[in-house]
Design a protein around this nucleic acid. Sequence first.
DNA 1: CCTTTCCGTTGCGATATGCAACCTACTATC
DNA 2: GATAGTAGGTTGCATATCGCAACGGAAAGG
Lengths: 158, 158
Amino acid sequence: MSRAEQLREVFAECGIGAALEVVGERWSFLILRGAFNGLRHFEEFQTNLGIARNILSNRLGRLVEHGILRRDPDPADRRKVTYRLTEKGRDLLPVLLSLRQWGERWISGHPSNPVLVDRYTRQPIAPMMVQSADGRELSLRDMEWVDREDLDRESNAA
Amino acid sequence: MSRAEQLREVFAECGIGAALEVVGERWSFLILRGAFNGLRHFEEFQTNLGIARNILSNRLGRLVEHGILRRDPDPADRRKVTYRLTEKGRDLLPVLLSLRQWGERWISGHPSNPVLVDRYTRQPIAPMMVQSADGRELSLRDMEWVDREDLDRESNAA
DNA sequence: CCTTTCCGTTGCGATATGCAACCTACTATC
DNA sequence: GATAGTAGGTTGCATATCGCAACGGAAAGG
């Protein structure tokens, strides 16, 4: 097995590694943040993020390849191309929000702008947290890592 | 203000960028995954992840610098150094879990091992989701990006 | 002593990124 | 319909980061 294949295994043996293979490169998260905030066109991403054009091109291509963004011609202006989130891409919102809330709390020290609010109550969304199946908030002390097979044996024994 | 300028402001201050400066490099998330799974020693990280030793040294140093890991001598063996998560580091759990769940759902297609369970009910934890302040699950359609000052004006007007 | 283990560091080649210039469609203006 | 400008790239080249293997000091262990 080649070194590259070994690495791929290391990355892929866990959902985190699998996810990072797709969105773990530099700029990918920032491009996605832009997409969630309404950026659609190449030039918008480029000027707003200050990313190098070749890298932006590469990242957009990768995100499209992996089905996270959809690439369509702009019907209003045939020079333009629109990049938008697919469902797979939109489903990354919890990742982005967790990261953002952590950054606000521990690095920048203050909430950033704009705020994501409940459209109807106008209240900012709640902090992301880990919850039990029945909705209680869990801290690390309340949790345990269990091998999947051991867990199956437990439930069979019960 | 032009649309481009509006967008520039949107991105100027954001916790995501701040967070990525600290944990956005290659391997950082995987090292943290290891730490959450109980890895403590340099050699454990190295053999478990297959990461190059110089890079591992660099990343551990950065994570310690930023207060995400604590570096202590091992009282039982003075050759050894233990790296453990600080509170700031443990607070990254929602990020890691969101990423992992996304990877399981959209990339690897199956849950990975081991599973994080509620210590008492033995049930796997719930999927990470975005919630309103009063605990309802929100989808993107239920939410809206609002400028912080506009939001303040809204609440004053009400 | 002598060997092994642990946590790095160093040198060097390979890969990824940044920057500027260039290119091809298409659009807008006159 | 010639000219200029815009959108979305590509290409060449410099720099930064990464991966690998070899080496080193300090502490166990025998």
